[in-house]
Computed example of a mutant assay.
Amino acid sequence: MTSSDVQQGPLRERLQRFPQRLAELGELVRNGSSRFGQLRQALAGVSAKMLTQTLRT
């Protein structure tokens, strides 16, 4: 994998969206969503593993 692949590929797109997804997660928690299933459903596209790791930190 070259640096140009990373600059133009799907990984770059996901990395660019990551801060937005964390902000959405924070907003959901502040608004009272606290069940894992509710958060996972609201954040479609985020894996259960990633959501679990984020919530534990």
Rank of each mutant, 00 (worst) to 15 (best):
L22W: 04
D5G: 04
L43P: 08
R14K: 10
R14W: 06
S3F: 15
A48M: 08
A44K: 10
L43M: 15
G45F: 01
Q41F: 13
V6S: 05
G45P: 06
G45R: 00
Q38E: 13
M1R: 01
L39M: 05
R21T: 15
Q7E: 12
N31V: 00
Q20N: 13
L43S: 06
S33N: 00
K49M: 08
A48T: 12
L51W: 06
L11E: 07
R56Q: 15
L15D: 05
T2S: 15
Q7G: 00
A42Q: 07
V6Q: 11
F36W: 05
F36P: 04
L22Q: 13
L22Y: 13
Q8E: 11
L28C: 11
R30Q: 13
R12A: 10
S3R: 14
A23L: 12
G26N: 09
A42Y: 01
A23V: 05
G9W: 02
G45D: 02
F36T: 03
A48F: 02
Q16S: 08
V46Q: 04
Q20C: 02
T52G: 04
G9A: 12
Q53M: 13
Q8R: 10
L25P: 06
F18P: 04
R30P: 00
T52Y: 14
T2F: 12
L11W: 12
Q20Y: 14
R14I: 01
S47Q: 06
S34L: 13
S3M: 15
L39G: 10
K49C: 07
T52I: 04
S47H: 04
M1L: 12
N31R: 15
L15E: 02
L39Q: 06
R35G: 02
A48C: 10
S34W: 11
D5M: 14
F36D: 10
L43I: 05
A42M: 07
L22T: 01
V29D: 09
V6W: 07
G32N: 11
G32R: 11
R30N: 08
T52W: 08
R17H: 02
D5Q: 15
V6F: 15
Q53F: 11
A42R: 10
L11M: 09
R56M: 15
L11I: 03
L28S: 06
A48V: 11
S4C: 06
F36N: 01
A44N: 10
